[in-house]
C-alpha cells in the first residue's frame, strides 16, 4: 500500500523514513545489539566451550529447576487466571474491584519485596517458620519457595489477558447455552473455552516467559546453593561473578533460546488467533 493510495497517511515520505529509521535504530541498539553480544560472548571460545558450559551438572540442575518452577507455576496460574477472569467478567459481586486490584498487585510490587514476603512468612523466624521446622518442612531456600515466588510474580498474566476478552464477549452465549439446558461444565467446555482459547494461550506463553526469566524474587528465596536451588538466571550471575564469562554467556544464551522459542510460539498463536477471528467474521457476514 503506497502513501498515494492511502489518504490516511499525511506525513511526507521523509518524515516516514526518519521515523522508521529511528525506531529501527532504537531497536537495534537496545534489543538486537545486546542479543548479538550475548551470542558472541557465548561462542567466544568456540562451540566446544559453549557445550561444556551447558553440559555441566550445575547448569543442567539449574535448567531442570527453572523448567520445574515454570511447569508448576504456569498451570497453577492458568487455573487461577481462568477462574478469576470468569468471576470478574461474568458476574457482579461485592469486592469485584478489590479482586481486580489484587490480581494486579504482583505487577505493582517489586520482585525483591515479593521474595521478602515469603521470607517473612516461611523463614525460620517468620509466621509459619516454627510450625514448618517442627514438621521438618522446608519452603524458602528450597524448591517450594522458588516455585511460590515464581507463582507470585507470574500471577496476573493469564487473568489480565482474559478479563478484557471475556468482558467484551459478555455472557449472551452462555445464557443461550443455559436456556438450552447445558450444564455449567458443558457451557465452559463448549462455549466459553473456544471463545477465549487464543487469549488464554497468549497469556500462558507470557506467563511462561516470565516464570523462566524471573531473577529478583527467586534470588531472595533461593539460598544460592549450587546444583540445588539455583535457577538459570541465578546461575548466570554466579558464573559471571566467578570470572567465568564464557560459561555465563553460554548459559545466558540458553535462557535466550528459551525466550526465542516462547516468542515464536507467541507470534504463531497471534497469527492463528487473527485467522480465527477473520474466519468467524466471515461466517457471521455470510449468515446475515
Amino acid at each position: 500500500m503506497s502513501a498515494a493510495s492511502n489518504p490516511v497517511i499525511t506525513e511526507t515520505r521523509g518524515v516516514r523514513v526518519l521515523l522508521i529509521a529511528l525506531a529501527c535504530l532504537f531497536l537495534g541498539v537496545v534489543l538486537v545489539l545486546p542479543l548479538a553480544v550475548v551470542v558472541g560472548e557465548a561462542l567466544a571460545k568456540g562451540l566446544g566451550a559453549w557445550w561444556a558450559a551447558i553440559d555441566e551438572p550445575n547448569a543442567l540442575a539449574a535448567l531442570r529447576l527453572t523448567l520445574t518452577a515454570a511447569a508448576i507455576a504456569v498451570p497453577a496460574n492458568l487455573v487461577f487466571g481462568v477462574c478469576a477472569a470468569w468471576a470478574v467478567a461474568k458476574f457482579e459481586f461485592k469486592g469485584k474491584q478489590l479482586l481486580i486490584t489484587l490480581i494486579d498487585l504482583p505487577f505493582a510490587v517489586s520482585p525483591v519485596i515479593a521474595g521478602l514476603i515469603y521470607v517473612l512468612l516461611f523463614g525460620a523466624h517468620g509466621w509459619f517458620g516454627p510450625a514448618l521446622a517442627a514438621h521438618d518442612l522446608k519452603v524458602i531456600f528450597a524448591v517450594p519457595g522458588i516455585v511460590l515466588a515464581t507463582v507470585f510474580v507470574t500471577f496476573p498474566f493469564v487473568a489480565r489477558e482474559l478479563i478484557p476478552v471475556m468482558q467484551a464477549q459478555g455472557s449472551d452465549e452462555e445464557e443461550v447455552a443455559a436456556t438450552l439446558g447445558a450444564s455449567g461444565w458443558q457451557t465452559f467446555w463448549r462455549v466459553t473455552l473456544p471463545n477465549i482459547k487464543w487469549a488464554l494461550l497468549y497469556g500462558v506463553i507470557l506467563c511462561n516467559a516470565r516464570a523462566m526469566g524471573e531473577f529478583g524474587a527467586v534470588s531472595v528465596v533461593s539460598g544460592h546453593i549450587r546444583g540445588l536451588t539455583n535457577t538459570l538466571p541465578l546461575h548466570v550471575e554466579i558464573l559471571y561473578n566467578e570470572y567465568n564469562f564464557v560459561a555465563a554467556f553460554a548459559t545466558a544464551s540458553l535462557l535466550m533460546l528459551l525466550a526465542l522459542i516462547t516468542l515464536v510460539l507467541k507470534s504463531l498463536v497471534e497469527a492463528r488467533a487473527a485467522a480465527a477471528a477473520r474466519a468467524a467474521h466471515k461466517a457471521r457476514e455470510h449468515n446475515s
Binding site: V119, A124, H125, G126, I140, F141, H224
Partner: peptide, 14 residues
C-alpha cells in the same frame, strides 16, 4: 556464596 552479611541473614532465616 554471597555477601557475608546477606549470607548470615539467610542462615538466620533458615
Amino acid at each position: 556464596h554471597g555477601g557475608s552479611g546477606k549470607q548470615a541473614r539467610a542462615v538466620i532465616d533458615g
